[in-house]
Amino acid sequence: MSSFLSIDNVSRLFGPNLTTGEKIAAKLGSKVETRSVRAVSDVSLSIRKGETLGLVGESGCGKSTLGRLIAGILPPTTGSVTIDGKPVMENGTKVTTRVQTVFQDPFASLDPRMKVGDTVAEGPIAHGLTTKGAAREYVAGWFERVGLDPVWADRYPHQFSGGQRQRIAIARALAMQPDVLICDEPVASLDVSIQAQIINLFLELTHDLELTCVFISHDLSVVQHVSDRVAVMYLGRIVELGPVAEVFGTPAHPYTSALFGSVPKLVLDADELVHFETIEGEVPSPLSPPSGCYYHPRCPLASEQCSAQQPATQPVAELRAVACHHFEKQLAKATA
């Protein structure tokens, strides 16, 4: 498999970032958190050109942080990200335009005082992808591409609906002519009937432009729909990775299995007594993760080994990997 986007042993720590008040409080002996969080812990991924990798996991597991590390918005504490062999960041600064991002809240990410056409043109002009004189036409092309009327380029963000604003955000990212697109919850804030429109646009554009994508979403059905492979994160680590149909069909990690099991399904039979598989307890604090396998306090398959030793990531099948001491047991359960 030739890797186009490579994430090599990337970790990111966040310090306690104390406010002045908290520092004083800490000096006076108050209980103030001084430990740091390992938001992303030793993540390695190789993504092929044109592939869409879905990234799932519970809130706070590190999805957005990993997305920002890949996009060069945030420097890793250790490790590196390369596109086609070239680094995304050097000395803490982003050195490429080949990776762009689309975020959840299109309103927050657009400057309210700027005409949307100017917002879209800004980056491409700065990086010589178009000129001031040609920008209007350049932007019009991208507007059409994402299903917006080019005459709207002179309007301001507040004059658009949520779905339209997300189209503008997509146009802005694509106008930079990236090879890699990081989408962090791109449909989460949209109305149900608009989500399908944006998902369809995403599918069409990634296919036509041969984009390599990382698609972050808490909505597993959306990830299942758009991704080729999926990575499941838990407390900063990737616990399972593989082709979407296989991971969803026969999860090899007990957490993957439990996470998918807890998603409510559309129930079409009144007599069906719905059984939720719920995961016991909650995600532990990332400030003091459990010993060994981070999942062991919630895992039904946990053994003594699990609390003592962190499981290594091992291959399960082609393109499939899992970090679990007892993945064979889990696979047997999933296929039973």
Binding site: I194, A196, E204, A245, K265, L266
Partner: peptide, 24 residues
Amino acid sequence: AGLIASLPAMAAPGTPLTQIPGTT
């Protein structure tokens, strides 16, 4: 009918979803 049809679960993975045109 449109809301139900637009759910990702109602389409084969990777294929276009049925969409309700327009906005609210």
